[in-house]
Design a protein around this nucleic acid. Structure first.
Length: 348
DNA sequence: AAGCCGGGGCA
DNA sequence: TGCCCAGGCTT
């Protein structure tokens, strides 16, 4: 390992971090509990998601699904509904499957061994280490993006964190400073990485580890972590038809093989039987851009009440209204569109 | 080993 | 606009 002369002598760093955590831990709803169910949910919710962004989702989720049994017996669509707007929707699908795994394979009792936890759908090495250390006392580092950032700065280590070997490499570095209480240590690293050792503009003067930080002493903090791989963005253009009459409209469910897995959306074609009865086809949203994504939504009002009533009685589409749409999970741009349209519709 | 999956916040 | 975030799955 670069910059490491020997493999001992760094454990005081871990203890110093624990002392800081004892006085500066964030007050969060999943702190002060070792319930593996709650820790599991929180770890999944906050994968690639900031605390401020996912906190309401976490609280609502726990309120509706307070235990494994409740989650396992719920409908998948309702689990997705509680994930609405969070992104990475395979997390919701996997969390539901994993709950059923726990019921079927462990009689509803959350497994306590790292290797068992790792077998749960949607649980990888980070999450398994986090749950087993926080809830069951395993002495394992939960290596995530915070570990990459904090450790690369402490040791001024230029190992490329965007490679697939980064996890193994920084796990070894983590063991150099890992104290007995790995559960608190892992949560302390989260708080330090979030509050002090931030990606941009880190608060080094307030850092409890500044005397141990090689990058700080070299005034090279901004050089770490090293990430060579750039994020690739692709353009995606979508076209939807808002086919409606009398406050009801057509939706359908997406597949699970692409973006927005199993979420609901408007049809991308006008149903052939309705084409002769269209009053207006007007473009509503002028390229509602969302990142590299552009969406066009065409307003299609069906002219004949008779044909409409007949159509919604027998076809593959799901028919809903503005109230019913609250029961479905839509991609965020469409969610915003429905809300806005509803507001406008009420004043027509 | 590399690509892909959301959405929000920030400089 | 590009980067980042309590990562994991698929190919």
């Amino acid at each position: 390992m670069k910059n490491i002369e020997h493999d001992s002598g760094f454990h005081h760093i871990g203890h110093k971090l624990l002392d800081w955590y004892g006085k500066n831990a964030r007050n969060l709803p999943f702190r002060n509990t070792k319930d593996p169910y709650k820790i599991w949910i929180c770890e999944i919710v906050f994968q690639q998601t900031r605390i401020t962004q996912g906190l309401n989702h976490y609280n609502n989720f726990i309120k509706r699904f307070p235990d494994v049994q409740t989650l396992a017996t719920a409908e998948e669509d309702e689990v997705l509904l509680y994930w609405k707007g969070l992104g990475y929707y395979s997390r919701a699908i996997n969390i539901h499957k994993a709950a059923q795994q726990i019921i079927n394979e462990y009689h509803g009792v959350f497994p306590s061994e790292y290797e068992e936890i790792l077998q749960l759908k949607g649980v990888g090495k980070y999450t398994a280490a986090a749950i087993s250390s926080i809830c069951f006392g395993a002495k394992l580092p939960a290596v995530d993006g915070n570990f990459y950032r904090v450790l690369s700065r402490i040791f001024a280590d230029d190992f490329d964190v965007s490679t697939s070997q980064a996890f193994t490499y920084f796990s070894q570095l983590a063991h150099l400073i890992l104290p007995e209480n790995a559960g608190d240590f892992n949560q302390a690293m989260m708080d330090l990485g979030s509050e002090i050792c931030k990606p941009k503009n880190p608060l080094c003067p307030e850092c409890p580890l500044r005397e141990d930080c090689l990058a700080f002493s070299l005034d090279r903090v901004s050089e770490f972590p090293v990430k060579k791989k750039k994020v690739k963005t692709v353009d995606l253009a979508l076209k939807y038809y808002f086919v409606h009459r009398d406050g009801r409209f057509l939706i359908q469910q997406r597949k699970d093989d692409f973006i927005w897995k199993k979420l609901f959306e408007f049809p991308s074609e006008i149903p052939e039987e309705l084409i002769p009865f269209i009053k207006s086809v007007k473009m509503i949203s002028h390229k509602l851009t969302h990142k590299n994504l552009s969406i066009e939504i065409f307003n299609v009002e069906v002219d004949s009440a008779e044909v409409w009533e007949d159509f919604i009685g027998k076809n593959e589409y799901v028919i809903t209204d503005f109230e019913g749409s609250h029961e479905k999970s839509f991609p965020k741009p469409l969610e915003n569109y429905i809300q806005n349209y509803h507001t406008a519709y009420r004043f027509l």
